[in-house]
Simulated assay, not measured.
Amino acid sequence: MDHAAASWEVGHEPGPQVVSLGVALTLTAVSIDVLLAGRLTLFFDLCFVALSLGLAALVRRRDFYMVALLPPLLMTLVFAFVALVARSAVADPRDSLLQAVISGVATHGVALFAGYALSLGWLGWRLHRESEAGVAAELERELGQSAG
């Protein structure tokens, strides 16, 4: 049975590993951006969008729920961390922690929306594609048994 699926179409990585990878890569993008620009810029936004899509491609099907919830949680938690250690990277240094997190999420809301939409779209496409393949395999099995 050849489904002609490329390795990037079907993820095989466990959810906890994908979440850990997402946290590590997001913090890496934040570190690079803050070191080079002193704040979060379009570089972070583009990395976040690509990362959201990439994580949706890597995760195995039974762990979809972890990645489906990841982009908003990841951005909020990372901005909370950045607001604790380098508040001026996401907001005015005089802002409270909560205000800095909200300001960061609002400023990078387009990246959050795009990353989340692409992630959910990719997961939905994978569910649709894999369910079609499952139905086709089931029909093939049933027809093969009744013919023989």
Rank of each mutant, 00 (worst) to 15 (best):
D45E: 13
A114I: 13
T41D: 13
Q17D: 08
L127Y: 10
L120N: 07
L42Y: 13
D63P: 10
V18Q: 00
G144I: 04
A50C: 12
L42G: 08
V90H: 11
S103G: 05
Q99N: 09
L112F: 12
W8S: 15
A111E: 06
R141W: 15
S103T: 15
L74T: 02
S52L: 14
H128S: 04
W125K: 04
L27Y: 14
S119W: 01
S31M: 12
A136Y: 04
L84A: 13
V34Q: 04
V10F: 06
L46G: 06
D92P: 02
R61H: 10
E13A: 08
A57N: 05
G124E: 06
W125I: 02
L40K: 06
V67S: 00
I102W: 07
G134I: 06
F81Q: 07
P72Y: 12
A37P: 00
R62N: 09
W122D: 00
V110Y: 12
G22Q: 05
P72E: 03
T41G: 04
G104N: 00
S31Q: 11
R39L: 05
R62S: 15
D63G: 13
A29E: 08
L46I: 07
L53M: 12
A50V: 08
G22E: 03
A91R: 00
F81E: 06
V101Y: 01
D33Y: 09
L55P: 05
L127A: 01
E9H: 01
G54V: 01
V23D: 01
T28F: 13
H3Y: 15
F79W: 03
L73S: 11
W125P: 02
L46M: 07
S7T: 13
A136L: 07
A4K: 15
L73Y: 09
A91W: 03
A114D: 03
G54C: 02
L42P: 01
G121M: 06
G11H: 04
L73G: 11
Q145A: 15
V85D: 03
V23P: 00
V19P: 01
A89F: 02
T107A: 13
Q99M: 08
A86H: 12
A29V: 05
R87D: 02
V110C: 04
A137I: 08
E13T: 07
S31Y: 07
D2C: 02
V110G: 11
A133H: 01
V49L: 13
L112H: 11
S103L: 02
R141I: 07
P16Y: 08
F44C: 09
S146K: 12
G22V: 10
I102A: 05
R94E: 06
L36S: 12
L55Y: 15
G144S: 15
S131G: 03
V90W: 05
V59Y: 01
